[in-house]
Design a binder for these strands. Structure first.
Lengths: 250, 250
DNA sequence: GATGCCTAAAAGTAGGACATATTGGCAAAT
DNA sequence: ATTTGCCAATATGTCCTACTTTTAGGCATC
């Protein structure tokens, strides 16, 4: 080395406890931590997160990393930051709850039953119409993707991760096939909802019902270009799934 | 001054042309600029945005500010950034198109007709159901908010900004009243859609139809706790509005 | 009581040094 | 020849420090 080293990271004892910051960068870990604390109400709307210098020191990170974390939270509508005023938690209606990261933070902390119900209700609103549109607009590629996903569900079943991934893939393919870019951007959000609906069903239900027949009915309706049948069968699928969920939660 | 000044910002000629960075911080301006360029396809999915040092120098900003801009774009699902690999535009399905900022960037650049239609279609899916739920769950406060909004629309008309704001407020109040936190977080997104739907109607239509009667019908159905009527009247409102829009675009 | 300046506090920007993590090539072993 | 594994180049990630800009909120003035 020909350049002198001014500083070396010698004091960093490799603490064994590494919380949830497994493979995350520091700013991501801070954003996740603060985001989760905001979502759980530890920092209620209107709360002040403190000055950047104090807060970053308290967390043991540089101001740069802390600021990048705050930028992430701002981008997701959780907080607001202005000179002299500081960083404040925004009112709930400003939060982008459908952001995939926020959903992940939400579920990783406390799988809030009420919110799971809300999310499920939203699925019930969106997916039947998406299925109807898919029946009108799906390309052969989309239909193939749905069929592949159904094969995966058949092969692995909904108890195995592969089967659950196939389930998500099926619902994503339908949203994709609806040919609406706004709906497509809900794939990540609805995907998370599907994931947790499945989680509740598989882990908390004594005899999780096999929903494969309903999925097949949806697919056949779409493949037959029958929008009304697609809407109806998807609504039926979700009605049954909703019944399962309510039974578990109640 | 008792402290010596090491550096002064003497070379910053106060350029008269200040683009769209009117009251924005630098990192916000960069995020807006890059975000818009990604949305318009100037940087297509998979494209590399270049190294942070080069890119920040090329834009005439510090690496700090540039990095904060990139963090924002990452948070919105537009790009991905990894050591050695660089910063790449993500595939479209990863974009959070319903993020209010992204919608703003989208519309400020090129009011893409196709996307406006998609967004409008999404309204047609969500809002009738939201109205039905609102009929079941709206509190007196929610009903008052809707009535105030209707008053505003009556008083100012849809040609004036105040009336347009009241229109947005009416639709927001319904989403709020649906008592579903996932729907509430769509207020910002749907609000943008309402804004631009109104824009098209008022600026490109020779005789913009007054949609006040349909709005009142929706309100009366909700106030009467008639979910089915609320769904029907909202669907009717959107059907007419959609007709207006199609007529203008085509 | 409304208006407008003024100050201090906090966020915003800059830039340099160093740390860390990937990718991809090169070399050695199979 | 193919695979495996190491290594180094490169770009992002982190930290620090100094400085600039904005703005909330107090204070004086009108």
């Amino acid at each position: 080395m020909d350049v002198p080293r001014i500083k070396k990271n010698a004091d960093a004892a490799p603490s064994r406890r590494r919380r949830k910051s497994e493979g995350l960068r520091i700013h991501q870990a801070i954003a996740c931590k603060l985001g989760s604390q905001i979502l759980t109400g530890h920092y209620p709307p209107g709360a002040n997160l403190g000055g950047e210098i104090d807060a970053s020191e308290k967390l043991g990170v540089s101001r740069t990393a802390y600021r990048e974390a705050i930028r992430i939270l701002i981008a997701k509508g959780l907080v607001d930051s202005r000179p002299k005023a500081g960083t404040h938690v925004l009112p709930r209606r400003r939060w982008n709850l459908l952001d995939p990261d926020i959903l992940a933070w939400m579920f990783s902390e406390s799988p809030d039953e009420e919110f799971v119900r809300d999310l499920f209700e939203l699925r019930g609103i969106i997916e039947p119409e998406a299925a109807a549109l898919a029946a009108l607009r799906a390309s052969d590629d989309h239909l193939n993707a749905m069929e592949d996903a159904l094969d995966g569900m058949r092969r692995y079943g909904l108890a195995k991760p592969e089967g659950q991934a196939a389930d998500q893939e099926f619902h994503s393919a339908i949203l994709d096939a609806a040919g609406n870019r706004a709906l497509t951007s809900l794939v990540g959000s609805v995907g998370a909802a599907v994931r947790w609906t499945t989680y509740f069903k598989q882990n908390l239900s004594p005899h999780p019902r096999n929903s494969l027949p309903e999925h097949e009915a949806v697919f056949h309706a779409i493949a037959a270009r029958d929008a009304e049948a697609a809407r109806r069968s998807m609504a039926h699928l979700l009605l049954l799934a909703r019944g399962d969920l309510v039974e578990i939660i109640a």
